[in-house]
Design a protein around this nucleic acid. Structure first.
Length: 575
DNA sequence: GCCGTTTTCGGCCCGACTGTTTTCAGTCG
């Protein structure tokens, strides 16, 4: 069954091919919005009775989605692919090349792929009407260095890089206020490019100095209020946009550049109905020729003027947040400060670097009330998994160290492997002695969706298993999730009172936010764990919390937000 | 192609920057 992401990507392909063909703008836009709706949907569209339940999906796009769900090629896609070379989709990804340009390169110069564009002579392109020498050379050069491997920044890398660039902007004498916006501020698990917004009475001097800063490797655009540059990231080029407005419009700009685009569009459509236009400069009375914007210094003013509760950045995806804000039904989102403990950390008993003491002391520093040590189980040799004997020894040591610290409760658990047949890597009698059991998969990934799903369901039905760690096994930028039916996992988790983990490691963040949202709707509890293998990784908790916020989670949905007394009850009461 | 607090037809968010242009189309977010 194709995932929402796969369905959305297929719709995006339809969009690009239609654009190249030159279809009517609003028809293309309709498919674009359908693609975004699918991507933002809180549960698999394959589970819906009718895709038309999604916003911006009508009868025509619903039929396309039905075909995609059934793994069939929709007529529109068949038709487009017969007409337009598929390779042109990739050509439109070249910087500065859009569907129009790609279409002309194909029709007038017979180039149907990035490779063929790279092989063109710049003079051939510049001989076409409307192209000059400069743009021709740019197109060929970007095709030559094009790398099809799209690597997005992981959230901790983007946070660090964005912080460094933001420091430069904040330290500039012309800057009054500045911040990070875009998908990083919305907390998306991976980030394509960085957006920085600034308030200044002297935009030009800030823009000029930013374009000439030492970290800049290329200047893509450089105007009075907007600068686009390229910097060196850990995995190659990273695009960065800086946008500057007057201080009194800072809230308007921050909102505009935080997005998402889809959120901004529905918000602005709402504003138009209220006779108001919204832009990065403020709010204006609709219909005026010369719009006079009344700037908003804070984002809150914008929502207030539209009769909406303030919508946190993590929710701005056009996924029902406007309706909830209107009804006053936005959840109070979980915060890092709500977290009382970490239920999944490793020590040097298995493959961690820290000791029981050093991890405990780091957890005390964070103000936690409890910490659960979950080292690997015996069959996971590569991670130095614990034999039953060593696990018993560890249990004794944890109890001993626990007495040493009055500030925190130390518990002994295990991250027990779910074996290929769904049985667990320790006997029940041993699991029973543990305070907390996390179960997860580290081997035999390729057994197919049916077998994988059954395997995990069986583990959930073990009375000692309290949560399933990194339930889909994805490693961002490195490994796709194994094939598994997450909706079935969620239903069984609800039925067996098993929690699901939101693993905070920046390259996992698994479960992903849309699934966590589905789980919460089904009444499943979430554990937000760091899976820390050393003391410093305990701080990854903030990334897990951010994803939980994107999933509309409040602290009531998160097991490890329980204060110690209630968590102790939770442990004792069993499943 | 989608959608409805004037509408089942006629609208559809808003603006910056570039290159090649004498007024704007294309791209991007």
């Amino acid at each position: 069954m194709p995932s929402n992401a796969e369905i959305s990507r297929a719709l995006e392909t339809v969009v690009t091919l239609m654009e190249i063909r030159g279809d009517e703008h609003y028809r293309v836009l309709a498919y674009q919005r359908a693609a975004e709706s699918v991507a933002a949907a809180g549960s698999p569209v394959s589970d819906l009775d009718d895709p038309k339940e999604l916003p911006h999906v009508g009868e025509t796009t619903a039929e396309v989605i039905r075909d995609l769900v059934a793994d069939e090629t929709p007529d529109i896609l068949d038709e487009l692919m017969a007409e337009i070379p598929r390779g042109l989709v990739e050509v439109t990804r070249l910087p500065g090349v859009g569907p129009r340009t790609a279409g002309r390169l194909w029709k007038e110069l017979d180039a149907t792929s990035v490779e063929e564009v790279a092989a063109l002579d710049a003079s051939d392109i510049s001989s076409l009407k409307g192209f000059g020498k400069k743009s021709a050379e740019k197109i060929v050069a970007s095709a030559e260095k094009y790398n099809s491997e799209e690597r997005r920044l992981l959230i901790h890398t983007a946070t660090a890089l964005g912080g460094k660039l933001l420091d430069f902007v904040r330290n500039h004498p012309a800057t009054e206020k500045a911040g990070l916006a875009g998908s990083l501020r919305r907390g998306k698990e991976t980030i394509g490019d960085l957006d920085i917004v600034a308030a200044s009475g002297d935009a030009k001097s800030l823009a000029d100095d930013f374009a000439e800063a030492e970290f800049v490797t290329d200047v893509v655009a450089h105007g009075e209020t907007k600068v686009s540059i390229v910097v060196d990231g850990p995995d190659g080029d990273v695009d960065v946009d800086l946008r500057i407005v007057a201080p009194e419009a800072y809230g308007s700009l921050l909102h505009h550049f935080t997005g998402s685009q889809a959120h901004n569009i529905v918000l602005r459509e709402r504003a138009v109905k209220m006779d108001t236009n919204i832009s990065e400069y403020g709010l204006a009375k609709a219909g005026e020729d010369e719009r006079e914007y009344i700037p908003a210094e804070t984002e809150a003013e914008i929502y207030e003027k539209l009769g909406l509760a303030y919508i946190p950045p993590e929710l701005r995806e056009d996924a029902g947040e406007l309706e909830a804000a209107e009804e006053g039904e936005l959840p109070r989102l979980v915060e890092v400060g709500d977290v009382r403990g970490d239920l999944h950390v490793h020590t040097n008993y298995s493959d961690g670097k820290g000791t029981i003491e050093s991890m405990a002391e780091a957890a005390i520093e964070l103000g936690y009330e409890y910490l659960v040590f979950c080292d690997h189980s015996q069959s996971l040799r590569v991670a130095n998994g614990l034999s039953p004997e060593r696990l018993s020894e560890k249990m004794v040591e944890v109890r001993k160290v626990d007495e040493k610290y009055g500030e925190i409760h130390l518990l002994c658990g295990s991250e027990v492997d779910i074996l290929k047949d769904g049985s667990l890597d320790y006997e029940d009698s041993l699991l029973e002695e543990l305070d907390f059991v996390v179960a997860s998969i580290h081997t035999s990934f390729q057994i197919g969706e049916e077998a994988m799903t059954d395997r995990i369901l069986r583990a959930m039905n073990n009375e000692h298993v309290r949560t399933i760690a990194h339930p889909t096994g994805r490693v961002l930028n490195r490994r796709e999730p194994y094939e598994v039916n997450v909706s079935r996992l969620i239903k069984e988790a609800a039925a067996t009172n098993t929690a699901l983990e939101l693993n905070s490691y920046p390259d996992r963040l698994d479960l992903s936010a849309p699934y966590v949202r589905e789980a919460i709707k089904a009444g499943v509890h979430i554990t937000i764990d760091t899976d820390a293998h050393d003391e410093s990784a305990l701080s990854f908790m903030k990334y897990g919390v951010t994803q939980a916020r994107r999933a509309w989670a409040g602290k009531g949905n998160v097991v490890n937000c329980l204060p110690w007394g209630e968590f102790e009850e939770f442990l004792k009461s069993g499943k």
